Amino acid sequence: MHIAAKPDNEASRLAALYELLILDTPPEERFDKIAQFAASEFDMPIVLITLLDVERQWFKARVGTKVCETGRDISFCSHAILSDDIMMVDDALQDPRFADNPLVTGAPHIRFYAGAPLALPSGLRLGTLCLIDRRPRTLDALDLGILGTLRDLAVMELARTEEKHDA
């Protein structure tokens, strides 16, 4: 299993995340609706809005799982936040970074992953909107555009959270 490197701006990224005062908060309809729409639109069994803390990824919104966090060391999202681009893994069993990952070899048996980084206007990537399936698949250009739009909506909601705390 390949553990993702920490972003070069990790200290600034974490400071921005903590300033939002969003970690470990109750579910919120505004984030849940984005995840629910994505699950329906893409026919995905699992959709998450994740935020990456020091040692864990925490789920602000989740569809298809009762788990509310996983270790950052095994998270696909830790890889996805290293770029502004959507990271897509068509078949995790065929990807050397993830083939022996416990989230692939055991529950929830991830085979497909697409993660759209949630970047604040400052460029700091705090987490992802991610789609997960238990079977291999891919997204076409139209699907990637829709995922990008849903990611933008999630980022707008994060910015609203930031504005509330700045007021």
Rank of each mutant, 00 (worst) to 15 (best):
L21D: 13
I46A: 02
C77Q: 14
G127V: 07
L51P: 01
G115P: 08
R125P: 04
D90R: 14
E69I: 01
S78R: 11
A38R: 03
L51I: 03
F42Q: 09
T105C: 11
A107K: 15
F112R: 09
L131V: 03
D85V: 10
F42C: 03
E28N: 13
G64T: 01
I22T: 10
L129Y: 04
L120H: 08
L129R: 05
R137N: 06
A80E: 09
I110C: 12
A15N: 12
H109C: 10
S78K: 05
P45H: 13
R30N: 12
D24P: 01
G71P: 05
A92S: 15
F31W: 02
M44P: 00
V47D: 12
D24K: 04
I3G: 00
E69C: 04
L51M: 11
M88F: 03
I81N: 01
L118V: 12
I86K: 03
G123T: 06
L129P: 06
E19W: 00
P45W: 07
L17E: 07
C68R: 12
Q57P: 05
M87N: 09
C77H: 01
R134D: 15
Q36Y: 07
R30L: 07
A119G: 01
A4L: 11
L23G: 05
S122N: 09
R135S: 14
A38V: 02
D91A: 12
C130A: 09
A39G: 05
H109T: 12
A38P: 02
A16V: 04
P108H: 15
I49H: 01
T50M: 00
E10W: 05
M44W: 06
D95N: 15
F59T: 03
M87H: 06
Q36C: 10
H109D: 13
Y18V: 01
I46P: 00
G106F: 04
R62Q: 12
S40W: 10
V54D: 15
A99F: 08
P96H: 15
R137E: 13
E19T: 07
G106H: 12
C130R: 04
K60L: 11
R30A: 14
Y18S: 01
P121R: 10
C130G: 02
S78P: 01
A61P: 02
N101D: 12
K66F: 01
R125D: 10
D53G: 08
V63K: 02
K33I: 11
A99C: 14
G64M: 06
F112H: 07
F42P: 06
I132D: 02
R13L: 11
T128K: 04
A38T: 10
H79K: 07
G127W: 00
N9V: 08
H109A: 10
K33Q: 15
I132F: 04
K60P: 02
I3H: 02
L93P: 07
A38M: 06
L51W: 00
G127P: 07
G127E: 07
F59G: 03
I132E: 06
D43G: 10
S83P: 04
A35K: 05
T128Y: 05
T50K: 00
L103R: 13
W58S: 00
F59I: 07
M87W: 05
F59K: 05
D140W: 10
K66D: 08
L52S: 04
E19D: 14
P121S: 06
G115L: 03
R72D: 05
D133N: 14
T105M: 13
A80T: 13
E55V: 11
L20E: 04
